[in-house]
């Protein structure tokens, strides 16, 4: 890695973006890189839109990723991918969990959930990887491991990071009793078809 890499994780409160970002930051730390990670807490667990910013590199000053500066956008939900797509560089990669979670205005009939998200994004972005992370996690044994499936996909686009670094990060951040399920989920994400 020659310069700073900006990775934005976006999703819905309760989807595990913060644990995912901790795994990612742990990996970066293991590589001896500078890490800055910024989260906004507060109401995160109450179903709001959540974003975590991770910047890694030789020397990282700002903890914030500016619009148009994300190398990788990891979206845990379709609408959130759309909401944050402006943060991606034109040559960046977006990883999208194909899950849809309707926000309250949609549920209450005051707004509609956009139907063309995936097609629109594919037309705009150099690399769009859409994965059924929720079903892959469920197959691995726990739907809550959706976040780790997405870390597996992320690992597959960061080939210069050795596989054992990710395994170490999983062990350091996941409770022992869930480790096996999460290893499976990670492998499923890493190997899944694009």
């Amino acid at each position: 890695m020659s310069e700073t890499k900006n990775i934005l994780l976006v999703g819905v409160g309760g989807q595990g973006t913060i644990l995912a970002s901790k795994i990612l930051a742990h990996v970066a730390l293991g590589q001896g890189w500078d890490v800055k990670m910024s989260e906004i807490h507060g109401m995160a667990q109450r179903g709001g839109s959540v974003v975590t910013q991770v910047r890694i590199g030789t020397k990282v000053y700002s903890p914030i990723i500016e619009p148009g500066e994300a190398d990788v956008l990891v979206a845990f939900e379709q609408l959130e991918a759309y909401r944050w797509i402006h943060t991606l560089r034109p040559d960046g990669t977006v990883i999208i969990n194909d899950q849809k979670i309707a926000p309250l205005p949609v549920v209450a009939g005051a707004a509609t959930y956009p139907e063309t998200i995936l097609d629109d994004i594919r037309a705009k972005v150099a690399t769009a990887i859409v994965v059924p992370a929720l079903s892959l996690a469920t197959e691995a044994g726990n739907s809550k491991a959706t976040n780790v499936v997405l870390m597996g996909v992320l690992a597959s686009v960061m080939p210069d990071v050795p596989a054992e670094s990710w395994q170490e990060a999983l062990e350091a951040n996941v409770p022992v009793r869930f480790l096996e399920v999460n290893r499976k989920a990670f492998a499923a994400g890493f190997a899944c078809e694009r």
Partner: peptide, 15 residues
């Protein structure tokens, strides 16, 4: 940046 100018107004996802 990958422009979001063409996007329709997105439904808010407040807590």
């Amino acid at each position: 940046s990958v422009t979001s100018a063409a996007l329709p107004p997105l439904p808010l996802r407040t807590p």
